[in-house]
Structures are given as structure tokens and as C-alpha cells.
């Protein structure tokens, strides 16, 4: 059994992530799909902390952590160096970070990496906040969410801003392969990782990874919450190649759910269900409706069909 487990995990158990951690599911699937011939640059964050607590490491692949905001630059440096030394052979570079390390503090380095076209697969584990430091708001925290820096109160319904549109920022840089994925769709996620690994040039995958304590959910509901985010159209699952949407995860009409089904089990949205919260919930429903129309998310046609 020991041998068997070695074969299936490139991110080993024994890490100290929370029970039910969505990011651990995501990262494990990414490595599973990517395989052992990779070098990983990891940003500071939960994933780094709970997988590499000295003297242990969960990683079976070569892996480096430098700083919070520079995983993309470190990855770019590795790619350039391997090519310059003639060692860029049968190896791929992965940069990975949370949403804060990606969309906020890491933005400058990512922009540079994309603009220069480094062949790096960048994975953003989007749990919609700075969970490692105790659930503060990030640029990818959704509207209305309670975090410790966007607490609801007499003058606030929680987070006042919308999720920054990272996939479109990637597209605007000319990143040839951009995708969103969810831990509720593991096969789709792994397919996208494999595809990204084949891309000539940069690729970006943003994976929705629920955070048990940050979202205030039961540990068993991690994957279910990611699924509900998709089925309420709050997190569209897309594949964008050379600037064109080539695939969309379709929701069958009878599976489409109102956003309340997604919001209700999460403590971070509990304040929206108090008196007066209906308007906020409607604003969130509007986001979902807009996504539905924009990406044609609901259809009887099977999953993952071509959108146009």
C-alpha cells in the first residue's frame, strides 16, 4: 500500500491543512495531472505553510518557496535559466499562489511574466480571501462576504467590492490558455492542467477552492460548496484559448439554483439573511444572472460543449 500511495500522490498526506481544505484538494489534483516532471514555485500562503512545515515537506516534486508576491518571477527565472543551460527538456514550470498572492500583491510580477511570455503554468487557488492570516478581504473576495476586514455592521453589508476579473486580465495580456476550474469538477480540472502543460507560452488556471474556516462551512461541504458556486452561476467554469471562449461548463436547467442555496450554508454570508439583506442578495443574484447571460451557462446540451 505504501508503494501505491507513493504513486498516486505528488503532494503527500501528513500536511497540516484544515480538515476538508479545498485548496489541498485542488493542489493535489493539479500535481496529479501535471506529473513528476515539474518544478514548482509556490507563493507564501496556507498551501506553503501547511505543506512545508520544517522538517517535513509534502512535495514529491522539486519545489521552492521564496516570497508572497514573487512566485511568478521566480518561476520565470527558472524557465529562462533552464532554457539558457539547455536543461529545459521534459520539464515544466508551475507557479502557484492563492488569490491574494495572485490578484493583489503578486499582480506586478504576474503581469511581467505574462507580458514576456514565459512558459509557466500559473495556478491560482481562489478561496476568496487572505485565509492564511485569518480570513481578511482580498481582491477576489466576492460582494457581500464577511471577512475580518470587511465585517458587516450597522453601516456595512460586508465586502463592498466585486471579484477582480483575473481571467480577463490574463486574456488581456495575450495569455494563450486561460481557464477556470472547480474542485467539484476534478476531471475537468485535471484535463485543463494537462492542456495547460502542453501550451507554448504562459497559461493561467484559476481554481475555486472553498475554505472551511474562512467561509464558515462544515468540512464535509467543501466540494459541495464549490459545486453550488458553479450551479448558481457565481463561478463560471470557462476555457479561453487565444482570447476566445472555447468551452463552458453548462448547467442543466433543472440543476440551476438561486444564489441563496450557495450563500445560506456559509457563515460569511449569514448577515445577508437578516432583515434588510434581501437587496444585497438581489445584487448577488444579479451577478449570477449576468454570468448566465454572458457565458450562456444554462443549457440542456451536455457539459463542456462548445459555447458557440
Amino acid at each position: 500500500m505504501e508503494k501505491e500511495r507513493k504513486l498516486i500522490n505528488l503532494m503527500e498526506p501528513g500536511h497540516t491543512g484544515c480538515a476538508g481544505c479545498g485548496q489541498a484538494i485542488g493542489a493535489r489534483l493539479v500535481l496529479k495531472a501535471a506529473g513528476p516532471r515539474v518544478i514548482v514555485a509556490n507563493a507564501t500562503g496556507c498551501l506553503e505553510v501547511y505543506t512545508t512545515r520544517y522538517p517535513h515537506s509534502s512535495w514529491e516534486v522539486p519545489w521552492i518557496h521564496s516570497l508572497f508576491e514573487n512566485a511568478s518571477a521566480v518561476a520565470a527565472g527558472m524557465e529562462v535559466a533552464l532554457k539558457a543551460m539547455g536543461r529545459y527538456d521534459n520539464v515544466k514550470i508551475i507557479a502557484q499562489a492563492g488569490d491574494g498572492g495572485t490578484a493583489d500583491i503578486g499582480m506586478g510580477c504576474i503581469s511581467g511574466m505574462w507580458e514576456r511570455g514565459h512558459e509557466v503554468m500559473y495556478v491560482c487557488y481562489d478561496n476568496e480571501g487572505y485565509m492564511n492570516t485569518g480570513y481578511q478581504r482580498s481582491g477576489l473576495t466576492p460582494l457581500g462576504a464577511r471577512t475580518t476586514t470587511s465585517p458587516p455592521g450597522a453601516f456595512s453589508w460586508g465586502n463592498l467590492t466585486h471579484k477582480k476579473n483575473m481571467p480577463m486580465i490574463a486574456v488581456a495580456h495575450g495569455v494563450p490558455y486561460v481557464a477556470t476550474a472547480s474542485v467539484s469538477e476534478p476531471r475537468d480540472l485535471m484535463r485543463k492542467v494537462k492542456k495547460a502543460m502542453e501550451v507554448c507560452g504562459p497559461s493561467y488556471i484559476q481554481i475555486l477552492v472553498p475554505c472551511v474556516p474562512g467561509w464558515g462551512i462544515e468540512s464535509k461541504l467543501s466540494i459541495h460548496m464549490a459545486r453550488l458556486a458553479v450551479e448558481t452561476c457565481l463561478f463560471p467554469i470557462l476555457e479561453i484559448e487565444n482570447g476566445k471562449i472555447t468551452r463552458v461548463k453548462r448547467i442543466k436547467p433543472d440543476e440551476l439554483k438561486p444564489v441563496t442555496e450557495y450563500l445560506k450554508p456559509q457563515k460569511r454570508f449569514a448577515h445577508l439573511f437578516r432583515e434588510g439583506g434581501e437587496e444585497e442578495i438581489k445584487r448577488i443574484q444579479d451577478i449570477a444572472d449576468r454570468n448566465l447571460r454572458e457565458f450562456n451557462l444554462v443549457s440542456d446540451v451536455d457539459d463542456l460543449s462548445s459555447s458557440q
Partner: peptide
């Protein structure tokens, strides 16, 4: 794209 990026890039290069 910045000195911060430049230092990080040589860090990555040196690490491999």
C-alpha cells in the same frame, strides 16, 4: 518589470 521582479528572477535562476 521592476527591480523586485529582477531580483526574484535571478533568485529562481540560481535555484535551478
Amino acid at each position: 518589470e521592476s527591480e523586485f521582479g529582477a531580483a526574484s528572477i535571478v533568485l529562481g535562476a540560481s535555484a535551478v
